[in-house]
């Protein structure tokens, strides 16, 4: 993972100047910052993990995780993370890579009797060119997003989450084990939470250093120091388990249809998802508490990060849903197998 840093830095360098406070505010108001998307596409964020002959950078999952964290830290108001994950899945399933804005359908499709399915809360659905979704029966589907009647919606961070109805037959499909899109999307959100959480920590530390009360900077107060330490611990924990999950993906790859299921990255991805979502409360609470009223001002950047954390922790499954699944898995395996399963992921 020696080159993690290089790709991450390249993305950061290219995107940071493009994501200005004005761009974030405009995106908050519903505008799609096409220029930011274009920067992402130019740098090749969405094609990061693809082979060179598909226009990709051949990045490892570990490197992809590092870039997704950066996209979270920058709060990029475009579906760059969705596109990166979508293309990773398309490649695993052997589906084609078309140009354009690509997004993920968070929940598996449920087809009605009329062979139509609802696409609910699709990130940037109304501006997307392509949709990637999990279809019934363990397959991945790719369909054009243009021409659908999108009903616009937004999450609490103001990010577009749009709804439409689609003919299931519109999807080109290929086998991929059921649930894969779900846990990979959940891991991506957990990784974005790590990045935005680090941004909150940076803002809080800077504020505590500059803001004086009772005749001294806030950071001179031990109670503030301890609050910031807890915030830093939460971010460190999220980063560590996310990195372990991306590393597991690097070692085990994505599950393939028809292959026997041994240790895979899903155990760590789900753990990362729970761990990140459950730490959102502490991170946002401390971030706001340290900032006082300032953190509530629309013109101060804190809320762009905190509102995203609140939104992201609920997307691609809540912590409680994933915990129920992880708990059921651990209960089925039994106490003696727990440690074996945890070490099998890293020992491969």
């Amino acid at each position: 993972m020696a080159s993690d840093g290089l790709l991450r830095e390249a993305v950061d360098r290219a995107l940071r100047p493009a994501i200005t406070p004005a761009v974030l505010a405009a995106a908050d108001g519903g505008a799609f910052p096409r220029a930011v998307w274009d920067v992402c596409a130019d740098v090749g964020v969405d094609r990061l993990t693809l082979p060179a002959d598909a226009g990709g950078a051949e990045a490892s999952p570990g490197e992809a995780g590092a870039v997704i964290r950066t996209l979270g830290a920058l709060q990029a108001p475009v579906p760059a993370v969705e596109a990166l994950v979508a293309r990773l899945l398309l490649a695993a399933a052997g589906l084609p890579q078309f140009d354009g804005v690509m997004t993920l359908v968070p929940a598996p499709l449920v087809a009605g009797a009329d062979r139509r399915a609802e696409l609910a809360d699709v990130p940037w659905g109304h501006v997307a060119d392509w949709l990637v979704a999990e279809l019934p029966g363990g397959s991945l589907g790719l369909a054009p997003a243009r021409g659908l009647e999108w009903r616009p919606g937004r999450n609490v961070a103001g990010e577009p989450r749009d709804t439409a109805v689609i003919e299931v037959a519109a999807f080109e499909r290929a086998p991929l084990p059921a649930g894969t899109l779900g846990w990979l999307g959940a891991l991506a959100r957990a990784t974005q939470i790590g990045g935005a959480g680090a941004a909150i920590l940076d803002l809080a530390v800077a504020h505590a250093a500059s803001r004086e009360q009772f005749g001294r900077p806030l950071l001179r107060f031990q109670v503030i120091q301890h609050q910031l330490a807890l915030l830093a611990e939460a971010v460190a924990a999220i980063d560590a388990v996310n990195a372990a999950a991306w590393q597991a993906l690097e070692v085990h790859g994505l599950p393939r249809a028809g292959r026997r299921r041994g240790a895979d990255a899903s155990l760590y991805a789900i753990a990362a998802r729970i761990s990140a979502a459950d730490r959102v409360e502490a991170i946002t609470a401390i971030g706001h508490q340290v900032h006082g009223a300032m953190g509530f001002a629309a013109e101060y950047p804190l809320h762009h990060a905190t509102r995203r954390l609140w939104a992201w922790r609920a997307e691609f499954g809540t912590a409680a849903e994933w915990a129920a699944q992880l708990g059921a898995r651990a209960l089925a395996r039994g106490g003696d197998r727990l440690w074996h399963d945890i070490t099998a992921v890293t020992d491969a």
Binding site: A323, A324, G327, L331
Partner: peptide
């Protein structure tokens, strides 16, 4: 399940 999932 939820409690043990969180612990794991």
């Amino acid at each position: 399940r939820v409690a043990l999932g969180r612990a794991v």
